[in-house]
Amino acid sequence: MPDPILSIHGLDAHYGDFQALYGVDLAVERGQVLAVIGANGAGKTTLMRSISGLLRNAPDAVRWQGRPIGALRADQIAALGIALVPEGRLLFPSLSVEENLIIGGQLGRKGPWSLTRIYDLFPILKERRNVPATALSGGQQQMVAIGRALMSNPELLMMDEISLGLAPVIIKSIYEALPGIVGEGLSAIVVEQDIAKALSVSSHVTCLQEGRVSLTGGSGELSRDAISKAYFGV
């Protein structure tokens, strides 16, 4: 069995006195798409914040290609090739669409993604490249957020609830673009509340419930029953 590119072991996370994650374990192998599912408040976003370095952890709790990275800052983790599309998109309002994309690539990591390729993937962004990013529609903003993360040529792309607040037809088109994105050896973590969406794009799935891993397995192998029990706890 190959060594996982990302492995998490016994991860706890706290906001002040409130503990949001309890001993979470998970692993992502190279080229794998892992879906993280769970109800509101299950700790999915906290998990993303912990991996990306926005929350600091014990050094050993998160390992990247075997190296402990739990205590690194977010910018150091980004430099390793881990990119996050944050929940709610969180574009830079003072920057134009193109500047948002350029700043995503400012680390200068080599790889297949460039401004041209992002514009090929989402042609509408090229048309609107000089507009302030927050003047776009929700779906277009989500494309910028995904493009911004890809511009860093990451080895692991994490997407936190990219369908949140978007119209179904937009969600569909964004999900249709995903295979083209993760096709080139890129690993990914997709966080979703929508179980069906999550299962359709992933090979493995991890379910969180109240800050703990309640289920993990192959996306095709788990029964609906097992998943809904792990999801809702009933």
């Binding site: 990306s52 800052r73 910018d75």
Partner: peptide, 8 residues
């Protein structure tokens, strides 16, 4: 978020 872009 700027930190996520690799800006210290």
């Amino acid at each position: 978020i700027a930190q996520l872009m690799g800006l210290n």
